[in-house]
Design a protein around this nucleic acid. Structure first.
Lengths: 225, 225
DNA sequence: GCATGGTTTAATGTATACATTCAAGTGAGA
DNA sequence: TCTCACTTGAATGTATACATTAAACCATGC
């Protein structure tokens, strides 16, 4: 017996995973069209589970199912990025405030601090991929500490969309050395139970990050991703 | 030829509409289970479009598709309501601020003012249903004026969930006479282009409304809806 | 040569038959 | 009578055949 988990997932669930991987890896580029039957053949299953997966991913805003035109992998415009960042800024700042109000113990904040340490290590090593992964982990954990499961879901979906753009801009932008100071400030405020400061510091951090990203995209004429 | 639009919608789209109607009307009560084949027979179509609709509505948090147990109409707990109100409070307040920053002309704010007038008229007439409808319209329009399509989508989904609970509490709560003062204050701030005031006034309004609703649910031991 | 209308066709949308899987029921043994 | 293994069945999950539809193409007439 192989050591793997063997959860015997449904083909439909596998299709969701595989399609997501294909999209995030760039194998299915933004703006491209693909027939349901093509994708089904590619994943080695029938159209039914592939179609169900496509419908699910349509609900998550990653693609669009169009009659007789196949599924289109949705491109992300600068305006989309602005919308997404605005939502993330708001919901993450709220999460920071709620987390601060919860009086977490030091143990509870360890994961958050670990992600910051990971970011610092990645920066020191000049490893941008590792930095991006740790940054994602920080934002995910921050939202988790906020304790609102709906915010986690929404932030997760929005984070997916951002990730695609980040892959492009990651090597264009300057190394985000300011970022970690901001992150530590947020954690300090949460530890101190200062909801307003946690909110405002994170809000400012996110707003600044948004400006950097948007300017980067505009300067490089990257109107679609 | 009948005068109706005849948009020739797909059965799948019809199934989504019908299922939503059945859920909101209470024909499919929260917590109840239903076989895909039952629902298909009820809607006069095969399982395929019904299943697609169910999967879509699962993504919207209205129900859950469980293997061999049918679809369960999801109940909403008090904790769910708190989560939903927190998200709505945040995103609507942001929308109010963004709307204020947009320097809308008087014309652009007419719809918003109409909804407030409708609420006043409904209050005067003691028509709670009409008041609730106008209140929904106000919040929808406010979010629209914020100009973020993703916020509109999210607020719409959350609004759906709230609506189910409101139907229950509408006749329990005192007539919301304070509500309209708040609404007018928000519009005033938007008209004046004062983003911070628009944000804060609406935030306070929503927070107060949440308190009222939650207390009402707790006092009446309505832990599930 | 161009516009127009009908025909073809390729793709999604739908129905249905079949496979799979888990839970409930059943029966034998202690 | 209780337990446990086995059988059975009912429901979802999947494959596939078929219906529908709109886009592309072609032919026909002006």
């Amino acid at each position: 017996m192989p050591s793997q988990a063997q959860k015997s997932k449904s083909n439909s669930a596998i299709a969701v995973e595989e399609l997501r991987n294909l999209i995030f890896s760039g194998a299915l580029p933004a703006g491209s069209d693909h027939l349901e039957s093509e994708l089904a053949a590619r994943l080695g299953m029938s159209r039914t589970p592939v179609r169900e997966a496509a419908l699910l991913l349509e609900g998550q805003g990653l693609l669009q199912v169009r009659a007789r035109k196949g599924v289109r992998i949705l491109p992300i415009s600068i305006d989309d990025m602005i919308e997404i960042y605005d939502v993330l800024t708001e919901l993450e700042s709220m999460s920071a405030a709620k987390a601060a109000a919860k009086q977490y113990q030091a143990d509870d904040l360890m994961v958050l601090e670990t992600t910051i340490n990971d970011m610092e290590a990645a920066l020191a090593a000049g490893n941008r991929e590792a930095w991006a992964a740790a940054d994602d982990a920080f934002h995910t954990e921050l939202v988790r500490l906020g304790g609102n499961s709906r915010v986690m879901t929404i932030a997760g979906l929005m984070g997916d969309q951002v990730r695609r753009a980040k892959a492009v801009t990651l090597y264009m932008r300057p190394l985000p050395t300011q970022s970690n100071k901001d992150h530590r400030s947020v954690v300090d405020a949460i530890r101190a139970g200062d909801a307003k400061r946690a909110h405002d510091v994170h809000y400012a951090h996110r707003t600044a990050a948004k400006e950097v990203l948007i300017n980067l995209l505009r300067q490089n004429r990257m109107h679609m991703l």
